[in-house]
């Protein structure tokens, strides 16, 4: 009986220990399945469809081409492989200009027929309308919007997930923004953090160290949203003043906030690394006549360089993942 209970509880322990593994696998699974659906869905917004005149040679268009057409950057079908006709736009907002309300009927019941005849009579038209209004004997041609490809996703320069009529999903500016912001943040945080940890590990007295260490550990625990709030209140206006910018919410502001957030982690981890230098090595260096600074530079830092690198990566990695430091970074990314 006792053994049975023991085995049962051991089983319970085993199940608990697999929870983390399961979670990681589930997260990966969900991210992939939700992410992949993006590549399967049409970039067209909602239930909209795209229709052209039946003689039009264009069969598919990409999301980027749709955007350029509706921004009037592409004005002729010849630019995307069609005839020489100039492109005429027709969206649901143009219902009023093309038809008057009496023609459509009180419940828009004549709308499909009107759209049909409009498309049939205008060779250069491209029409976006809801699939509810598709006419029964449609004489025009529906064209397909090519799905988002991995290539256009990674290299696209426009990120407008709410654009009309087709969403623009290019993740390149987000990736570049993240890289820039974190690079500048490392450049700011690493020298300051390293200097502080050298001070704490090699220079400061024991009392000073016992005072500073818990304080820095407390600072590591401050919620990121508080750092973000601080950045929004202090750093953003400061940058606006110094550089005379219309808005202060720039990549630099984001980098400074990230650097401040990363500092406590960088200091604690690299200080541990510095203190792991064997005493004998330091004393040997001092015995050879090197002074304290030379010992730190030539012996202590080279010995603990791997720990310092780890500190930088851990600190910035934690900070990059945080999204809630006010608007500063979010704007820098977009």
């Amino acid at each position: 009986m006792k053994k049975l209970i023991g085995n049962l509880i051991q089983g319970l322990f085993l199940i608990s220990s697999t929870v983390t593994t399961l979670t990681v696998l589930l997260i990966v699974f969900f991210l992939f399945s939700e992410g992949l659906s993006m590549f399967k869905e049409s970039p067209l917004e909602g239930e909209n469809i795209l229709a052209v005149h039946s003689n039009n040679k264009v069969k598919t268009v990409s999301a980027e081409q749709i955007k350029n057409i509706f921004d009037r950057k592409i004005t002729h079908w010849s630019e995307i492989g069609g005839s020489a006709d100039s492109i005429i736009l027709f969206t649901s907002q143009d219902f009023d200009t093309y038809f008057n309300a009496d023609d459509l009927g009180p419940k828009f019941e004549h709308l499909p027929r009107k759209i049909d005849s409009l498309i049939n009579s205008t060779p250069g038209i491209i029409a976006v309308f809801s699939s509810r209004y598709i006419p029964p004997h449609f004489r025009g041609k529906l064209i397909e919007v090519s799905n988002v490809s991995l290539n256009s996703f990674m290299s696209g320069r426009e990120w407008f997930p709410t654009a009309h009529p087709a969403v623009q999903l290019g993740v390149l500016p987000l990736i570049l923004g993240t890289l820039w912001v974190s690079l500048i943040a490392i450049l700011i945080a690493l020298p300051i953090g390293l200097a502080t940890s050298i001070y704490m590990a090699e220079v400061a007295s024991v009392r000073m160290r016992n005072l500073l260490k818990p304080v820095i550990e407390l600072l590591a625990g401050i919620p990121s949203v508080v750092y973000g709030f601080f950045g929004l209140i202090i750093i953003v206006p400061m940058i606006q003043d110094i550089f005379n910018l219309p808005v202060g919410e720039t990549a630099l502001a984001g980098s400074i906030v990230l650097a401040i957030m990363a500092l406590p982690t960088i200091i604690t981890v690299s200080e541990d690394a510095l203190r792991n230098t064997p005493r004998a090595m330091k004393e040997a260096s001092l015995a050879l006549g090197a002074n304290r600074w030379q010992t730190i530079r030539r012996v202590v830092i080279p010995y603990s360089i791997s720990g310092i690198a780890a500190a930088a990566i851990l600190g910035i990695g934690r900070a990059i993942g945080e999204t809630c430091f006010g608007h500063s970074v979010r704007l820098a990314l977009s």
Binding site: L212, V215, I216, L219, V226, F230, I260, L263
Partner: peptide, 8 residues
């Protein structure tokens, strides 16, 4: 440096 954190 500690000053920055303290000032926050």
């Amino acid at each position: 440096m500690i000053g920055i954190l303290f000032s926050i």
